[in-house]
Design a protein around this nucleic acid. Structure first.
Lengths: 144, 144
DNA sequence: TCGGAAGAGTTGTAGAGTGCAACGATATCA
DNA sequence: TGATATCGTTGCACTCTACAACTCTTCCGA
């Protein structure tokens, strides 16, 4: 076993553990918000409005899945749909006021968790780790 | 926004992306093996046999969930159950020959994917990233 | 020694999340 | 105008999951 292979195995194993933990704690993020729902809200806010098709493409989900998630979020009053005036097939999704509140609360709660977890990391460690994660995800996106 | 908060947000976002990708590509790892199934096989091999309760505790799953997963793996002929002679409540799980083959194949395929993804990383980068992931997971485990 | 408590595992039930296929509505282009 | 493509919804089936109730086995204290 070379040092390179050892590192690759470790990375593989630890990333799997991260994925597993994300699933296990998904429901606990916010009483009213699943991980997918949170992700969708965050994406809508970040993009300042987007289409269901965009969400499906970005998160590698079937459009029917996104359609149902969006419908649920609308029923909860967290998002609004606005038909695109220039293309009536398209519905542009925006955050409703309540969605904005929930997202803010959930984000703060998440940040608090991360701050506790990473309290012992100094600024250099954090920045380096963040950079590595960005680099890894970019590589993963181009080698699916 | 402080530099520390920026790094925390990035880490949070990128880890979420990793979890999302893991879910999306779980089914494509091996035609016969879901991500959970692969994880269970790998854990059994690593521990050289383990109990269903161990799996449930380690992966934060309900024992009924593990029971069904294990039953499915047994039906596929990938694992064997051996009643512990010293405690007849316990079933020790072991890899069946076919399970060993499948695991070896899946692991090789996974490693290949990671090697491609991380081809541009030099040894220092890899080791550092692996160490950071281990450290992060340890922190996450102690701050649930 | 016996009886209750605890642990391991299974099964019934219910719910969330997902993909595929078929569909209607709208838009685009030859 | 008609063929084709895009956006979104709905019916259906399947997997994964947790909770609760149950059986079987073991352990421990009176």
């Amino acid at each position: 076993m070379t040092a390179r292979n050892a590192a690759l195995e470790t990375i593989q194993r630890e990333l799997t553990a991260i994925a597993r933990r994300a699933r296990a704690t998904a429901a606990q993020m916010h009483p009213e918000l699943s991980l997918v729902a949170y992700t969708i809200l965050a994406h809508i806010e970040e993009q300042q409005g987007c289409r269901a098709t965009d969400l499906a493409a970005h998160y590698l989900l079937d459009k029917s899945t996104v359609s149902r998630q969006v419908a649920a979020l609308e029923r909860l009053g967290l998002i609004e749909r606005r038909v695109d005036p220039s293309d009536h097939r398209v519905q542009v999704l925006h955050l409703a006021p309540h969605g904005n509140e929930i997202l803010t609360t959930a984000r703060a709660s998440r940040r608090e968790t991360f701050e506790e977890r990473l309290a012992a990391w100094d600024q250099g460690d954090l920045t380096r780790f963040a950079d590595d994660l960005v680099r890894y995800n970019a590589d993963a996106a181009s080698h699916p």
